[in-house]
């Protein structure tokens, strides 16, 4: 038994947040999970934001004080259909030698240069043997090493091998671990350790698959679901944080798939989780209008997972649909909400 608890409020790591200048959007955010991607470019003193509006998505850059600089609208590559195809997610993938912006839709997967200016790759989804009642789409995007992994409606995860430069992107593998549509994918750098779990995929039934990346991906563990969608997943120091449709956050040991901690975090479905990797802060955002910030750690004595509640923020009358930290130390975060034509920013006091 470990009794090493310290007094929370005295912890210097716990800080309060306040609203900062928000960034106007051209179109409101759609009610999708993980509907905000943030790319920090400290060298250029810029932050990029990506938000899905519906049939279009907006990417924009902003100065540290939140003043928007440049913006661009992205659309789904055209095709036949009754209605304009909808975008499901936009996400920046940071690879060792380049950064790509990936857009998923009901049509396929589009990969752009990081500013969204040039589309370097297009992968059309094959509805194949899909029954007519099945919505066909791609959703869930993450980078692992020089691979970009994208989830699909069928539960398959497509692994694309990305060259250091140029458009010669190759679909190198298809991972079959899920039976229901993929919702989200999380990765963390393996830091040269062999056999370490460095990718987690989540699906509509709430089940998770833990993978080791490489020339061939290996399925390490499968964590069964309980009928509630797992809308968002994160991975940090071998801890899997999963946010579910019933408002719970579960913390699992990635290597064994053991459920260690179960948090009744929100009153409505969780729509986004995000991690500040430098400090192990976890952000959870839900349709109940709340954003919570947690601190994850491992006990120095026995390596067990620990969690602490740091902050809660109510974004009044806003069905939150995306939330991300804006810096690796977790001292600022941004939030999007359904029907809201701005990105709300919060900074530590």
């Amino acid at each position: 038994m470990v009794a090493a608890d310290s007094e929370g409020p005295k912890d210097p790591g716990i800080r309060m947040f306040r609203r900062e200048r928000s960034i106007p959007l051209q179109g409101s955010a759609a009610a999708l999970c993980n509907n905000l991607s943030v790319l920090q470019l400290p060298a250029r003193n810029l932050t990029l934001f990506g938000v899905v509006h519906g049939p279009s998505a907006q990417v924009l850059s902003a100065a540290p004080d939140g003043v928007p600089l440049a913006q661009r609208q992205l659309h789904v590559k055209e095709g036949a259909g009754v209605s304009a195809p909808h975008i499901t997610q936009v996400h920046w993938c940071v690879l060792p030698f380049r950064v790509l912006l990936v857009l998923t839709s009901h049509r396929g997967i589009q990969m752009y240069e990081s500013d969204g200016s040039i589309m370097v790759y297009w992968h059309a989804l094959d509805s194949g043997d899909a029954p007519s009642v099945q919505a066909v789409f791609a959703r869930g995007i993450a980078a692992s090493g020089h691979f970009i992994c994208v989830g699909t409606w069928s539960g398959r995860v497509l692994v694309f091998d990305i060259p250091a430069k140029g458009p010669n992107i190759v679909l190198s593998e298809e991972l079959a671990g899920h039976q229901t549509p993929i919702t989200d994918i999380a990765t963390e750098p393996a830091q040269g350790q062999d056999g370490v779990a460095d990718m987690v995929t989540a699906d509509d039934s709430g089940s998770l698959c833990v993978w080791r990346s490489g020339p061939e991906f290996t399925l390490l563990t499968r964590i069964p679901g309980f009928g509630v969608p797992c809308s968002s997943v994160q991975l940090w120091q071998g801890i899997v944080a999963a946010g579910y449709g019933n408002g719970q956050v579960h913390l699992y040991e990635a290597t064994t798939g053991t459920l260690n901690i179960q948090i009744n975090a929100h009153a409505r479905a969780i729509c986004a989780l995000n991690l500040a990797p430098e400090v192990g802060k976890l952000l959870s955002a839900a349709e109940d209008t709340f954003v919570h910030i947690w601190k994850l750690s491992r006990s120095p004595q026995n390596g067990c997972i620990e969690v602490e509640h740091c902050h809660s923020e109510c974004v009044s009358d806003t069905q939150v649909c995306g939330a991300q930290f804006c810096d690796p130390s977790g001292s600022s975060f941004a939030v999007t909400g359904y029907d809201l034509t701005e990105i709300l920013r919060f900074g530590s006091v």
């Binding site: 408002g247 459920l259 260690n260 179960q262 009744n264 009153a267 109940d288 109510c314």
Partner: peptide
């Protein structure tokens, strides 16, 4: 959007952590 009242069926009232 109210922040009180009953939670959805199958959802637990937020505010509790279980270490299992």
């Amino acid at each position: 959007l109210p922040v009180s009242g009953p939670v959805p069926w199958g959802t637990e009232v937020p505010g509790l952590i279980r270490i299992r």
